[in-house]
């Protein structure tokens, strides 16, 4: 069984539910405090930096955490091909640490900037994501079908993937399969504007990976949609229909859409 460390940084608040979903898909998950010796991390097959507000988002979301020795150990894991996943605040940490998109090792090539468009500010709601047609096989997409639409919640104020040379970088990232997931509407259309792209993210990016597909950053929270009982009844087909049809505890405990990303993580790690 693959071993996954779920990092608990000062301000993380999703580590236990993230570890719970990892266990549900057959991974051996352990919550790993940032105060432990960084080298202990290297014994794991993968590391997940979960959601939350590391260091209270002081200076910028993820900025201070990205400088921690434990994140240097995460970079070492990435360098040897081990799995590294950042969810929401974890995604912000990986981008600030230069691990995603990682086309120039160590360089910070992007930002997760404050949400733009719409009302801006902190946004907490359900959105839909789907794999980019050119998405490479990765820890987030290894088990996904090409046109799979996955509803899951976002909860962030700084989720806008952006870069100084945005359009040019976007072209390169799409071409090379780094863009894993995009925000889409109910029909899978990624170009429906602010109704589907909740933060003005460049190219509607919801998840990006580094070279090799083993390092990825995703802004929505798959761990908050990994059981059917977490899915809103008013959610569109097919997940909303399944949720409405679930009448008893056992049915509600069935897997939700977010679990598909953790199944990808397991599939990717098992193939390594």
């Amino acid at each position: 069984m693959r071993r996954v460390a779920v990092l608990q940084l000062p301000g993380s608040n999703c580590e236990w539910e993230t570890a719970r979903v990892c266990r549900a898909v057959g991974l051996d998950a352990e919550v790993f405090r940032w105060t432990r010796a960084p080298r202990d991390l290297l014994a794991f097959d993968a590391a997940i930096i979960p959601g939350g507000f590391a260091f209270e988002d002081r200076v910028r979301a993820g900025a201070i955490a990205a400088k921690l020795p434990i994140v240097e150990a995460v970079a070492e894991m990435a360098a040897v091909g081990k799995g590294v996943l950042g969810i929401c605040n974890g995604a912000q940490v990986l981008v600030e640490a230069g691990l995603v998109p990682g086309t120039t090792p160590g360089a910070v090539e992007m930002a997760l900037a404050p949400n733009a468009g719409g009302r801006g500010g902190y946004d907490c709601r359900w959105v839909r994501v789907a794999p980019h047609p050119r998405a490479r096989r990765s820890i987030l997409t290894a088990a996904l079908e090409p046109n799979e639409i996955l509803p899951m919640p976002i909860a962030h104020g700084e989720g806008r993937f952006t870069a100084r040379d945005g359009e040019r970088l976007l072209g390169r990232l799409e071409e090379s399969g780094h863009v894993l997931l995009r925000y889409v509407d109910e029909s899978g259309d990624p170009d429906a504007g602010i109704a589907t792209n909740p933060n003005g993210s460049l190219g509607g990016i919801a998840a990006l990976c580094g070279a090799g597909g083993h390092v990825a950053a995703v802004m929505p929270h798959p761990e908050r949609s990994s059981w059917l009982f977490q899915v809103p009844a008013e959610c569109g087909a097919p997940w909303g229909g399944r949720r409405r049809a679930a009448r008893d505890a056992a049915s509600l405990d069935a897997p939700g859409p977010g679990r598909r990303l953790f199944e990808s993580l397991r599939a990717f790690l098992e193939d390594q």
């Binding site: 640490a97 090539e109 952006t162």
Partner: peptide
Amino acid sequence: RRSGLLVNPHY
């Protein structure tokens, strides 16, 4: 990663 903290020039 090991250089600079207060500004992210990408935004």
